[in-house]
């Protein structure tokens, strides 16, 4: 039973970790090599990993998929280890309100990427999501900012603040729950027990009378 609990807890933690890894922003140092635009019909497996092409447009069966082609500095372990170059393809879609990036400017981003395409300018591509080649799933590029060179490192301020906030929220919730138990539940339980004792003793007395 305890092992089952451990396994379940592990699964929940793993899922939460995967979700955060998918959703939180990451930065790649890359060179934009081109942009492409193609008509696509998404399968049900792909759909959860895509947003919409343009926020204002109606959703149909076929849709445009904007992609940004790049060569990026290869990195592992949240960008701590890096070396070598690798091609990477990003999709460029509006996110709307979920995941909460509030990106509505995919057309502008395409224009920026087009202006940078084929140039020797290194950029930092902020993105979220995964590249899953066997399902044709791409990370979504959120913004592109020029940087000095391939050695540039972006400090993950947002993620730092996010986890800090998560920690504070968790501690506060725990304190609230404890206060609730201490002030509301415990006194109620005590008075319940008191009442129960009195009642029992009265019944006991009544039984005693018939003995």
């Amino acid at each position: 039973m305890r092992n089952l609990k451990r396994v379940l807890r592990g699964c929940v933690l793993l899922l939460a970790g995967l979700y955060l890894h998918y959703t939180l922003p990451q930065h790649d140092i890359a060179k934009v090599t081109g942009v492409s635009d193609r008509l696509e019909r998404l399968s049900w497996v792909q759909k959860p990993f895509f947003n919409q092409g343009d926020l204002g447009a109606a959703e149909g069966e076929m849709r445009d998929l904007r992609l940004i082609n790049s060569v990026r500095v290869n990195s592992w372990f949240f960008g701590l280890w890096r070396g070598g170059e690798q091609v990477m393809v990003y999709r460029n879609e509006d996110t709307g309100v979920y995941p909460p990036y509030f990106k509505f400017d995919s057309s502008d981003l395409e224009a920026e990427a087009t202006a940078l395409a084929g140039k020797e300018q290194w950029v930092s591509i902020t993105h979220y999501g995964w590249r899953l080649r066997f399902l044709s799933i791409y990370p979504n590029a959120v913004s592109i900012t020029p940087v000095s060179g391939p050695e540039h490192r972006v400090f993950p301020w947002f993620n730092l603040f996010f986890f800090g906030f998560l920690l504070v929220a968790g501690v506060t919730l725990r304190a609230m729950w404890r206060q609730f138990l201490e002030r509301m539940v415990d006194p109620a339980m005590e008075s319940l027990e008191d009442g129960y004792d009195r009642r029992k003793s009265r019944i006991q007395k009544w039984i005693d009378r018939w003995r």
């Binding site: 909460p100 990036y101 509030f102 990106k103 509505f104 400017d105 502008d108 959120v142 913004s143």
Partner: peptide
């Protein structure tokens, strides 16, 4: 925070 995010991203 939301207003700032919308401004920065777009």
């Amino acid at each position: 925070a939301l207003a700032w995010l919308v401004y920065v991203v777009n």
